[in-house]
Every structure is written in structure tokens, then in C-alpha cells.
Amino acid sequence: MERKKTKNRREFIRSSMRFGMVLALGGVGGLAFRNAAAGKSVWQIDPFKCTWCGRCATHCVLNPSAVKCVHAYEMCGYCDLCGGYLKVGHSDRSTAAENQLCPTAAINRKFIEEPYYEYVINEDLCIGCGKCAEGCTAFGNGSMFLQIKHDICVDCNECSIARVCPSDAIKRINGPDPYLMKGDFSEPA
């Protein structure tokens, strides 16, 4: 008899605690859902904040990094003397290794017409070091810039590059088109 009583008491405590927890979880969930986002958000680099520090190449959980250089052709000046392609102090404007800025030779330089050249990024080789983006922004139009490629990015809960980004340029963004493209020369207001 006494045993049964104890059991009932225990059962009562347990179910009331359970009830309390369901309420608590419901409360937490309800409050959280109120501010919930419907869409999907992904990590992306703001090219206007990026300072090409080079950490994208070394701090991504993937090797090589999911950050790649993206080229906005509509912004390119098609210069022969390309700050994104040639080393500062290059001896010649040629495709020779000693003149190329890219450490993996991921930029293809193609002659269009005198004196213009097209620059195409070979993503398989790009390691996202940002050297070309830095050169292009310093000496050219800034048509080369870094972006996180979402066919590669594994979308970590906390981006390990964002954690070390010195200019705080990596943020989560929403939307069906998860890129922050430099479509225009000016920074969007």
C-alpha cells in the first residue's frame, strides 16, 4: 500500500515536471518562432568591406577555401596593365610566371583586341587568397573581388572565416540570390 502511494507520488512529480517542461519548451519555441526567418540565410562577403587580408584562403574549413575570386566583367576595364593579373614591379606584361600575381595561376588572360584583354578566373585553381582582388581594387576598377561560392560552401553554423575576418566583412545574408555582387562601381547606400 505504501509502495503504491510512493509510486503515485513519484508519477505525479514526474508528470507535473514534464508538463512544466513542455510549457517551457513551448514558450521558448513560440518566442523564437515569432522572430524566425522564413527563408534561408547563407554566409557572404561584403566586397566593399573586404580588405583582402588573405585569411579566406587559410581559415575556411574546406581546403581549398569556398571563397573564390569573382570577376564582374561589366566593371572590368580590360586593361593591358592589369593590377589584378600582374605583380607590382612586373618585368613585362606577359603571362610569364614571374609577372603573374596569382600564386596558382588561376587567372586566364586572353587577348581581345589592341590593347584589351579579357581576364577569366579558373575556379578550380583559385584558392581565394584575394591578391588579385587587392591589386584590381588598388590599381583598377575593383572588378575582381572575393565571394563565397555556395556550391562549395558547407554553410557552417558559424563561419570560421567570419570569426577571424579583420574587417567584419562576412555576414549572413538572405535571399534567393546569395551573392553581394559589385554590379556598379559605387557602394549601394
Partner: peptide, 11 residues
């Protein structure tokens, strides 16, 4: 010359 269409893969 026409510049290539830089299409980026979605998430």
C-alpha cells in the same frame, strides 16, 4: 567582343 555571363551557383 561580348563579355561572358558570369552565372553563380545558388545555395
Amino acid at each position: 567582343y561580348q563579355y561572358p555571363d558570369a552565372k553563380l551557383p545558388g545555395s
